[in-house]
């Protein structure tokens, strides 16, 4: 087995011209597949030694609103650090629920995207925030919105020879959170997960679901209903509370769950509605933040 460890994105992209080469980031999915015998790489491209992939920056308002740009190998542990967590709280919530400290030290945002597991913990957050994936190839860099980047369970819009180099997430002004149900309290794959983000400037609510479909699902009907129901001009506590149970039902209706050994489809649909109602209550209920 050959292992290449380039130190720049350009070198990495050049190496990807070889169609047999397989990309290794944190290895938390890759190595499981190797150990299970599902992946037998002859040539591996390790991203570990590319410093520019490992950093993140808060960009000035190139567009409106401002963005955070995360290099592809930014780890879950990085997402938990206070400076980044205060900019992207839902992403930090999601990162905190991933694996154990060792897994969080190794696993990366680019890896979570490239694996595109229906249960990928950051994916509902990326979908809710309408993140943009930056993908490099010898032809240059192109942007792919997350909504089109993930094309199915463990399938992405990456073409051969393309490398995820960064993810851009807008900085919103409003409440954000991530919720997850698993069988136990830690180190567990989501049975259902949900990200909710409020943007008071655009007066929008974004809600994306995980583990209840082939990829992250935006509950657009529920989002629009909730955004149209709440009174954006007055503090939550002073207005009549929106019917959050109805919001939960709309979200549950957007789910496309299946039965598997971690839970039934019926349970998943029920649970995602509960998560939605609770997240919305946190955002818009009595005494809420938004």
């Amino acid at each position: 087995m050959t292992i290449l460890s380039p130190t720049s994105i350009d070198e990495a992209v050049a190496a990807l011209a070889d169609p047999a080469i397989q990309v290794l980031a944190g290895g938390t999915d890759f190595m499981v597949e190797v150990n299970a015998g599902h992946r037998r790489p002859d040539k591996v491209l390790s991203l570990r030694h590319i410093p520019e992939l490992r950093t993140w920056e808060q960009l000035p308002a190139r567009d409106d609103p401002a963005h955070v740009r995360l290099g592809a190998t930014v780890t879950y542990t990085d997402m938990l650090q206070p400076d980044l967590a205060q900019l992207l709280p839902a992403l930090a919530h999601a990162a905190r629920t991933v694996g154990s400290p060792q897994i969080r030290n190794a696993g990366t945002i680019g890896g979570n995207l490239a694996t595109a597991s229906p249960a990928g913990d950051t994916l509902p957050v990326l979908a809710a925030l309408e993140a943009v994936v930056e993908v490099a190839s010898p032809l240059g860099v192109r942007d792919i919105p997350v909504a089109t980047f993930i094309t199915g369970p463990k399938r992405t819009a990456l073409s051969p020879g393309e490398l995820i180099v960064a993810v851009r997430l807008p900085l919103l002004d409003g409440h954000q959170e991530f919720r997850k149900i698993g069988v136990r309290n830690a180190m567990v794959i989501a049975v259902a997960s949900l990200a909710l983000a409020v943007d008071t400037r655009t007066r929008t609510v974004r809600c994306a679901l995980g583990s209840v479909g082939p990829g992250p699902i935006r509950a657009t009907e529920a989002e629009e209903w909730l955004a149209g129901t709440i009174d954006w001009d007055r503090p939550a506590a002073t207005t009549e509370a929106p019917d959050l149970a109805y919001f939960g039902r709309l979200v549950a209706g957007a789910a496309q769950p299946i039965d598997d050994h971690r839970g039934t489809a019926a349970y998943r649909r029920h649970a995602i509605g509960v998560l939605a109602e609770r997240a919305a209550a946190q955002a818009f209920g009595a005494g809420s933040a938004a």
Partner: peptide, 14 residues
């Protein structure tokens, strides 16, 4: 479910 991703044993948090 023949690995620890699928076979769940109580973790410290439980």
């Amino acid at each position: 479910n023949h690995d620890f991703a699928g076979y769940h044993i109580a973790a410290n948090a439980d």
